[in-house]
Every structure is written in structure tokens, then in C-alpha cells.
Write a protein that binds this DNA or RNA. Sequence first.
DNA 1: GGTACGGTCTGGTACGTACCAGTGATTCTG
DNA 2: CAGAATCACTGGTACGTACCAGACCGTACC
Lengths: 255, 255
Amino acid sequence: MQSRVITDGPSPKHVQLREVLAEMAAHELGPDAAIPSERDLMTRYDVSRSTVRKAIDSLVVDGLLHRTHGKGTFVSRPRLESRLHLASFSQDMRRRGMTPSTQLLGVRADVPPSDVAKSLGLAADAPAWRIDRVRLADGRPIALENGWYPSEPLPGLDRHDLGGSLYEIFADTYGLGIDSAEQTLWGEVADASTARRLDAPIGTALLVFRRVSAADGLPMEHVVSRYRGDRYQIHMSLGRDQLGSDRTATEGKTS
Amino acid sequence: MQSRVITDGPSPKHVQLREVLAEMAAHELGPDAAIPSERDLMTRYDVSRSTVRKAIDSLVVDGLLHRTHGKGTFVSRPRLESRLHLASFSQDMRRRGMTPSTQLLGVRADVPPSDVAKSLGLAADAPAWRIDRVRLADGRPIALENGWYPSEPLPGLDRHDLGGSLYEIFADTYGLGIDSAEQTLWGEVADASTARRLDAPIGTALLVFRRVSAADGLPMEHVVSRYRGDRYQIHMSLGRDQLGSDRTATEGKTS
DNA sequence: GGTACGGTCTGGTACGTACCAGTGATTCTG
DNA sequence: CAGAATCACTGGTACGTACCAGACCGTACC
């Protein structure tokens, strides 16, 4: 077989070589097979070793190849990456055959703490809605939510029924569809007031989510949710797909 | 401030430079700030430009820096579009500019508990490898791993260096590429022995992952990892892709 | 037979050089 | 003064060289 020629052209040589090698790895060679040595490749394609190494480097970073010092460079088996698919609280609960409900603790307009204001892109003294809720499944408390929502794009939010999905209210009443979010998850231990709200002992393990959601690039929500670690689990499947694009499903689960 | 000197030493120069730059980016500089130019760095640290570029390359790959042709190289704001790799403890730590390490607590062949045996598809009295490890970042304990691995497909596993990625050993030595996993996450509170291993107070909040991984449909791993909830966070970025199908990227993070 | 030693593959590190290609401020020119 | 040309930066590509270090194999030696 004669090798494709690498030339000075529209794309850099190392990119062309990369494509040649990726093609070779995917078709002519199988997983665990060795690709030609670097010195072999440089004569075969008439490029320098650094160009060969750069091409291989990028394939190694992408997980297509892996190197072993002294032995060679080999085709990797497709590696694992994951993307998560997240469902809403209500959806999760219903999927588990449980009935979700919400207990509204309070709604009021207030000036949020500076970090919240910053997340929401608000001026330091701008007011926002503060909404505190307890989420329940089959009547048992699962999570405590402390949310802040900018008041300017959401006039009269406090006059709505806040016992259900806020996202539905945003979409139906204000025409604001939440389309992105940043979420951070960590562990915490319940303090006295949180424990009381969740009807749990002080010191109960909690899963804490902080989520900042946006509609059309505008932050609309800053919410911290504290889930009972003993009643709530997150489950995800990590599966292989194709190189660089894997998907997973995630579900909340109550026990 | 005088620059740390880069020398021929135990670790390659580009690795040393990488650490220096990661430190600089994280502390002296903030997001969007420019790092010194490549030619500046090569005189400042007395290394060649290719060494400088190699150090920067790896930080770019990890998302810490980004380059703009003609303008410079800049510190990235923590972006969250990178993907979660399943065996990514080390990579996640490095991405945060921390140095990962592993402390092996013990390896032995033993008969696993029935639930583990069931997960791994083993007979009730079949032996398996039990591997206990503490994962550290910058020398501080982050997670405690208790893993079980079937002994039949993994003969002599205890003779390998278990201070790094087990997945790499599986792939390189046994030709077993992990290609799927089921993972469950919940909250817990540290008991006495876990607390001791993690050098944390009893009652510390933990994030607990249970993962069952498989290669070619055969279960190869049952591992429970307990992360310190105060030092480890998971961050996910949720974006709407198509109607009704959200995608996310996830990465581990230490604080 | 077993061990030790080279030789020779492999990839890993590091140097230097040269030139190309964006970016943006300065300077020249009409 | 407005626009074009220039220049001094930045990173991007590509070359060549040299030597180090791990893996493997064959051979010479006990």
C-alpha cells in the first residue's frame, strides 16, 4: 500500500499526518495493534520526527493511541467519557413511582448576598425574589431549596402558585425558557435548622447542589438544594459511544 | 518575585515549568490575565522554546490556559465543557494544578461479600482481589477507595504497581478495556475508620460513589469511593441541546 | 541451564534554527 | 485627517540534531 503524501498545503503537516494515522488506526489496524515507529513514519511520509510526534501527541490526547516507552505506540480501545442527562425533581420522583410535592416556606423580595447578586448579574443593591421550599416524595422531606430569582424580569412572581415547577411559570408566564445551567455538587452535614426542615437528625449527611440557571444567557436562578444523603441517590450509566462523544443517563432516586 | 529555577532533575523540565506556570496562573494571575510570552519564558527560565511550548501545551489541553495567535496566552476562567473521564482522578487533580498521588493500603485475594460477588457475576465462594487505596492531592487525602476485582481474568494483579491507574494496567497487561459502568452517588458521614484514613474528623461529610465497571460486558470492578465532601466538588455544566435532551459535562474539583 | 552483557529496537527529552501568520500600535502618505 | 504601509510584538509550523531510557533478543560466559 502506498502512503498518502504529506505536503505543504492548506492544513499543517501534523494535522494531515494525524488524519492519516487516525484512518490507519481505525481501519487497517485494530485495537492494541502497534502503529509504525516514529522513525519509520518520518521516512515514510518525509517529515521530521517532531512533526510525527506532534501528530501522535494529539491522537494520544484524544485517547485514540497510547504509547509505551521502549515498545511502541498502540491503538487504544475506545475510552470512556460521559455526559450526563439530568431530569427535574418532579420527573425523578414520578419515575420512581413516588408522588412529588412541595411545601412553600416563604417568598419575599430582598437584597441577595453579594455572591448571589454576582451570579445573577445584579447590582449590589438590586432586589430579588427569595423562595424557600421543601421538596417531598410521598410526603417525606427529601430536599431543602433556597432559591434567588431576579425580580426585574419576573414581576409579580410571588402571586403565582409556587408549589410546582418554577420553570413552568417562567416559561408560561414570562416567556423565559431555562436553557442552560451550571451546577456544583458537594457533601455537607445537616445543621440544626436544616435538620429541622428536613425532619432529620442533626449531622445527617447531605448532598448539596448549587445551580445557576439561565434563559437566553441571562441568569434567572441561583438555588442551593440540600438533599438528604440517606434518602436520595444519583444514578448514572456511563457507556461507550464513539470517540469523544458519549452520553449518559442520570436519575435521581429515593430509597 | 524571583522565579523558581528549572534544572535537570528527577522530573523533566517541561513538567517543572508546567507546575510553575500552573501555580502562577492560579495565584499571581487571575482569569483572563496573560502569562508571559513564550520567548520571555525561555529566557526567564533558561529553557528552549520547545520546552516552554510543551509545558503550555499540556496546560492548554487541561483547560487551564488558552492561546490566541498574535495576542498571547491567557488564563482560562474555570470552564466546564471538558468531559469526565472515568479513570480521571489524576487528571482532574492536575487540571486544578494539584499533584495527585496514591497511597496503597493493601492488596489481597479474598472472598468478597455477597452483594459484591453478585455485582461482579462471581460464584458465592469465588475469590477476588481486594484493593484499598487512599487518593491524595498535594499530599492531602481526598478519597478512600475500596475496590474488588475478579481474580480469574486478572492473574498476578497484586504484582503490579497499584499506585496509578488500574484501568491502564487492565488495558496494557490484560487487554481489558473498561467500556461501561454504572455509578451511584450518595451522601454519608465519616465513621471512625474512614475518618482516620482520610485524616478528617469523625462526622465529616462524604460524597460516596459506588461504581461497577465492565469490559466487553464482563464486570471487572466494584469500587466504593468515599470523597471528602469538604475538599471535593463535582461540577457540571448543563446545556440544552435539542428539545427535551439536555447534555452536560462533568468534572471533579477539589477546593 | 542460567545469567550477564551488548546491541538495537522503541519512545522521551531538550536543544537550536528558521520562517510563517495573526494583532495592534505607530508612522508614513495622499 | 483618513487610510495605508510598516514594524514590533504574539503564537504556529517545521526542520535537524543529540542524547537518555525502557524493552527485547541474541550471544558469550560461567
